[in-house]
Write a protein that binds this DNA or RNA. Structure first.
Lengths: 203, 203
DNA sequence: CCTACCGATCGGTAGG
DNA sequence: CCTACCGATCGGTAGG
């Protein structure tokens, strides 16, 4: 078993075993973080749930911060697969925006993740804690907002920045209200709000 | 709103010393929780910042959970004073809704609290953790949403529940985006969204 | 309101 | 990937 020559042990492996283990760790880490945050994601808890030793798990990342950053990266990939890629079949502009909102809301409504939206949970947790973890979360959200703004511009919106903000607010608001109230009616409210946003005259 | 009497040591004191100490503790607790959450609010940290012993502080609440519940209660009171009461001069309905939104956004924009909106931070933190703390946060938010809905009904909104959801989403979205981007333009976006919401024909 | 202490858990290290 | 350990901090208690 040759060690990879990465600075972070395990992080650069291409062999199937190390990659599989790392992937299994991150899948579990995403679930924990969406419920209990990136602080609640402790190495001891993660190791115990995966029936590994703490130090064995630790060796994959080298520090808790690197584990957190890897988890944020995995969340971005999962978001891309679940929300962005399914919408790529829709044409740019209004249809694409409609498809992205629909994919996101369906995603939440399906209760696929025990803690709801990873980004809602972790951005609220880290928005006031300076450092690389906050920066990575902020960059992922800026990238999403940027895509909404770009599509709004293509759609001829008079205020693409404002449009992106409102669409973000509505879908995040739906996550937030659903987590607390468990009332599925919020998804109907959110879909209605998105419909009206998309129907707005561009003047 | 009288304090409960006495099962919790220190909680029912009316003498000025105990009340002042408790009030000072909760003021500091609110600030910590808005930045680092109700888990980041540790007894040791709070005691050290207030130059008290851990056990001296602990005696005021009896458990960490009681400290958290007292902090949630103090946040509700502060919210009422900063957002609800200033709007009571405006007539019921649209003017009241406009005043509440304005007070909340001005409040956030003023950077009075180091961690932004206490409710945004703690509801995201506790929405998936069953227990009395989650219940208290959910009740406070339900109460606020209920007031928005009530005012929307008075204003003749065709969908008061939907209206309350959208107004909530916009103001919470402004907090969330401002915490991460530090771009004050989000407040202009939010005010514009509120104006359009309030101008909507009731048909 | 204090000192002194408890067992559990934290992130992390030594050495294999 | 493991056992065995480290100092720091957690919530909480005893006793005053």
């Amino acid at each position: 078993m040759a060690e990879a020559s990465a600075t972070i042990p395990g992080a650069g492996q291409v062999g199937s075993k190390g990659t599989d283990t790392r992937s299994a760790i991150l899948t579990r880490a995403l679930d924990i973080a969406s419920v209990d945050g990136l602080e609640g994601l402790t190495i001891g808890r993660l190791a115990s749930e995966l029936k590994m030793s703490k130090s064995g798990l630790f060796a994959h990342f080298g520090s808790k911060q690197e584990l957190q950053l890897a988890t944020v990266g995995a969340a971005a990939e999962r978001f891309r697969i679940a929300v962005i890629e399914p919408a790529l079949g829709a044409p740019d502009g209004v249809p694409r925006l409609r498809a992205i909102a629909a994919a996101y809301l369906t995603h939440l409504e399906g209760n696929e993740y025990s803690g709801g939206c990873f980004w809602a949970a972790t951005s609220a947790e880290y928005d006031d804690r300076p450092g690389p973890v906050r920066d990575a979360i902020a960059a992922a959200l800026d990238s999403w907002l940027g895509e909404l703004e770009r599509q709004a511009r293509i759609a001829g919106s008079p205020g693409p920045g404002r449009f992106a903000f409102e669409m973000y607010a509505v879908v995040m608001g739906a996550n937030s209200r659903y987590r607390l109230s468990k009332d599925p009616e919020v998804f109907a409210y959110a879909r209605d709000a998105i419909d009206r946003l998309l129907a707005e005259p561009p003047g």
